[in-house]
Write a protein that binds this DNA or RNA. Structure first.
Lengths: 214, 214, 214, 214
DNA sequence: CATGAATGAGTATTCATTCAT
DNA sequence: TATGAATGAATACTCATTCAT
């Protein structure tokens, strides 16, 4: 038997409904922003698509800007979750790297709006200190640094500043994501990951040439 | 009876003046677009800064869009010239790569508006088939492919699809440029080039670990 | 089994509570309207200040307009009560006039929102035939007319149309109230009443000059 | 023969046209604001009435608020000019007062929008230090003070603080204007002026009663 | 009876573009 | 040719009111 909580009179808030609708709005918003760009996205159209009143939209997000930034945050968080999930339970560090790369590329391929919305964020909110993407990247970084340091001390990767690795790797992933999207490149995440890992791990020079440089 | 002068009436076109002013306009436009974004840039402000009438602007560029795209083309062309100049007279291919990387990073560092305007282009003209950047990249690519093929046949770089090299290298440069700009990273082009070349050439793995993979 | 109480279902109406809350609402509404103007006053804010739901507000007053007009009526009524009280038990007519003037000015000084709300009423409900103020003034007037007529027949005031007196006196009070409020004039009701009565009673001309006019 | 001034190229500004149109706009605006109130007045409607584009409106007045306040200033200035003209060339001070009163009442009767717009100003711009009306009243006052002082020293008006006269007279005029407008009172300026002057000059009390008070 | 979630009509302002001079 | 006055389409956000609970 369920005890009915004594509640104050009036129409009760349904927090579940609220959350669900919040998600629905952000989903639809992401699509709309990705398709029409920030300024091109009309709040009225969004409300219509969702079958709710425009005022309701504003009950959930107090401005177009807030709505947009919430949508960015949301996909960004989903990316992190996806990447994190891909390496869960994997112990071998090199394997972790490979899986993370594949998961990242896969996510971006599956969510084309993601790249678009990152662009829009930069284009329209240049004055936010850091783009959402880099806020999250920052937050995620320490784990990888630790891993690289450990591999280095084991002699499995060459001695070099760890930031060199994270910077170059991060920039490469970032650039790949954009270039894929902008050029409509059709490589599968799988083969693209293979290419990236091949070069990041071994470089392009033949071993003899590598030795000559050191 | 009036003697008709042996040239068509009206002020004669001075093509030199026209070209010079064209450049001035594009310079000022680049700055303005970079600073305020595409929509935020006011053509009236631009005309005022240049000390010309707004109508005059439209005699040179038939729309704000044309003006913007011309400005993008212009910086992009300047980047190519800069990079090309950096490798002129250099014979050693690896040295060419190094110089090109440094020149590229140096140009971007010196022209922050460059990155901004690329973003703006994507954000506002999503429907142009390819962004200007990739049009130019494409046009530039064959030379590098040839070089890589030649190095490969000499055994100086490992056997792999040449596109793997150009893609990964290109994406890395692209990502680095954006990340530098967005995060305000303060590395000098010099040291950043060193980091990139180190990893691109030799990878991050220790030689023993590399051997295990092959 | 639940014992059903021997009264009709639902919460019983408590007319006293209803009236008390009505007053509370009108008090708070007056303040809010005076402070923010008619359009600037937000019904949500009012409900919050009162600690009741917005819907409840609408159970008491069926629209913002009704609420506003009720608030106007209420202060207006309080003004009349105040002025009436000031002359209760006074027999000497000139003394009655003096007391009424002082009471009127005192009330306005104590209730700055009063003037504000009169302005707002005119600004937003131009199409109501007569402003509340003049409805009440009208209703109040006959008593004064009678008094003036009686004074006139006694030869205590000069022969003239009684309406001349009530109009000029009324307009002067009305103008004084507004001017006090708008200019932030700091005279006490006491001294201001003295000035008004001095001139209304004796005019500004010296007796000799007065005689020349008649 | 008229020498054509060398002018810079482009469409020339026609300052006469500009001024004329400015007046036309303010005239139409006054009517519109008076009729519909400040918020009720639609800038689009105004533009349509004037047969110009809405953008053009904004070339002349940078916001609805500016337009409104300019319209207020304009009528207020016209009132002053009218009153000033009415007393030009009159030497007898009491005659000056009489003419000013008649001119003032006549102007208000002829420009009903005048009162309306004063109300609207107060209702919507409560935070402007002083309403336009009182700014102008202030500016005009010293002349009257001087006159009253002079009359007092000549013994033509009773000894009293001059401010008492200007305040009471000013408030009476102000209140009369409002009351006329709000109640739709139909007295002619002529007879109303007579009533006002009669009381202001001689008071309502019979001479015997006046003597008893002093 | 009381509540507050949902609604959607209503409007000032900007700025790219045109075209009369 | 050069100018800048004129234009008008396009759009986020508020808040009084309703009604399901």
């Amino acid at each position: 038997m369920k005890t009915v909580a004594p509640r104050k009179p009036g129409r009760p808030v349904d927090p579940e409904l609220r959350d669900r609708r919040c998600e629905e709005i952000l989903d639809a918003a992401l699509k709309l922003f990705a398709e029409h760009g920030y300024s091109g996205a009309d709040t009225q159209v969004l409300a219509d698509q969702l079958g709710i009143g425009k005022g309701t939209l504003y009950r959930y997000f107090s401005s177009k800007e807030r709505l947009f930034l919430a949508a960015v945050d949301r996909v960004m968080r989903r990316l992190r979750v996806t990447v994190d999930a891909s390496i869960a339970g994997i112990d071998e560090p090199l394997e972790q790297i490979g899986r993370a790369v594949r998961a990242y590329l896969g996510f971006v391929a599956d969510n084309p709006g993601f790249v678009e919305i990152l662009i829009q964020e930069r284009a329209h909110f240049k004055d936010r200190k850091k783009p959402t993407y880099f806020e999250h990247r920052e937050a995620n970084l320490e784990r990888w640094r630790t891993m690289y340091r450990s591999l280095m001390s084991e002699g499995r990767i060459r001695k070099m500043p760890v930031d060199r690795i994270t910077d170059v790797f991060g920039d490469l992933m970032y650039g790949t994501m954009f270039a894929n999207y902008f050029t409509g490149r059709q490589r599968t995440p799988e083969e693209q990951a293979k290419a990236i890992l091949d070069i990041m791990f071994c470089g392009i020079l033949a071993p003899t040439e590598q030795r000559r440089l050191s």
